[in-house]
């Protein structure tokens, strides 16, 4: 990603000095471009197209065209049969369920990214130390990532059960030890205020290792001489962390934050399995809402419209983030 890939000076880029290179230049890049273009162009165009119609289950072309002409609320295209309308977009700001889902999703993104980054950074610093059985421990640290999110969510349901889980028993034991009258029962998945946090915890259990892994690879690339020099100058560990390690890792941190942020933006499987979006609408995510809108409710056009707005927002968000990071980054512009 741009933020991280400042080019080492010894790699020269060229447009290809020989005729062969000018051809190979295209050969190298084309397969990726073609695959991505072919696969994304149809869904994008299709979604864009139907987001301006009223295509949905139960609304047959004829009826809606008739409805459109009689209502006069949209232009009926004779050949198309479906009404062409902006209603899907106009409806969004009033769609309470959509707004709640959007708020929940933003919460997941921010809480998830902060927790995962802080923990991930700390663990990367730990793993960068020498200690007994470090290689085995590194793989253990990565294990959660290797579990399918569906299974992680089921495990979450088992471990965060408010009465039958070991965790619940731990809290009961603590209550007894403290001599509390009523045992502490944490409604991990059953209270609208706690459940979103639990979702974040499950996601963080799974993906903190990813952050750790990326940052660890960055840490290992920092040459020891830089630390040595700082130590000679009398810097303590905290100062080294603040003045050297952290700034050097900043571009990589930005990348990792962006990746995790955008991945969490798409969260669905964990939510569906752990809470089904409940209690109430406390944990419903945007992707889940869109998915339900399209397939359960058959409102394909509205689902497409939401996805499209989402796509635009994501791109804006990512671009702004990258621009800010590039400004802040010490290697900016190199």
């Amino acid at each position: 990603m741009e933020a991280t890939t400042s080019r080492p000076a010894h790699v020269e880029q060229s447009e290809g000095s020989t005729r062969e290179d000018r051809i190979m230049r295209r050969v190298f890049l084309s397969p990726a471009i073609i695959v991505l273009l072919l696969l994304s162009i149809f869904p994008l165009l299709w979604s864009l197209g139907i987001s301006f119609t009223n295509i949905q289950r139960g609304a047959t072309p004829d009826q809606s065209a008739v409805a459109a002409t009689t209502e006069g609320s949209g232009a009926a295209l004779p050949g198309l049969g479906f009404e062409v309308t902006l209603r899907n977009f106009a409806r969004m700001p009033q769609d309470q369920r959509l707004l709640t889902a959007a708020a929940n999703t933003l919460f997941y993104v921010f809480a998830g990214v902060i927790i995962q980054y802080v923990l991930g950074f700390g663990l990367a610093l730990v793993l960068n130390q020498e200690f007994f059985a470090r290689n085995v421990v590194r793989v253990i640290f990565l294990m959660p990532m290797m579990m399918t999110p569906v299974a992680a969510a089921y495990s979450g349901r088992m471990l965060f059960d408010s009465t039958l889980s070991p965790l619940a028993q731990l809290f009961r034991t603590i209550s007894t030890v403290l001599g509390l009258e009523r045992p502490i029962v944490v409604p991990w998945l059953t209270s609208g205020t706690v459940a979103p946090w639990t979702i974040v915890l499950i996601d963080s259990w799974q993906w903190t290792p990813f952050v750790t892994l990326i940052l660890l690879s960055g840490l290992q690339a920092i040459p020891d001489e830089i630390y040595e020099a700082a130590r000679v100058d009398g810097a303590n560990a905290l100062q080294i962390l603040r003045k050297i390690t952290f700034p050097l890792l900043l571009p990589l941190s930005a990348t990792v934050i962006l990746i995790r942020g955008l991945e969490i933006f798409k969260i669905i499987d964990v939510v569906v399995v752990a809470t089904g979006g409940g209690p109430g609408s406390a944990t419903e995510s945007l992707t889940m809402y869109i998915f339900k809108t399209a397939l359960t409710f058959g409102n394909y056009s509205y689902a497409a419209a939401i996805s499209f707005v989402l796509l635009v927002l994501v791109i804006i968000f990512a671009t702004v983030f990258l621009v800010i990071v590039r400004r802040l980054s010490p290697q900016a512009g190199s």
Binding site: E2, S40, P43, S47
Partner: peptide, 25 residues
């Protein structure tokens, strides 16, 4: 850089946008 960004951005397309058209395709 723009090309690279475009390629990477494909990873972040909302999956809900793709599921139905993919199914049809």
């Amino acid at each position: 850089n723009d090309i690279a960004f475009w390629i990477i951005s494909q990873r972040f397309l909302p999956p809900a946008l793709f599921v139905v058209p993919f199914l049809m395709l």
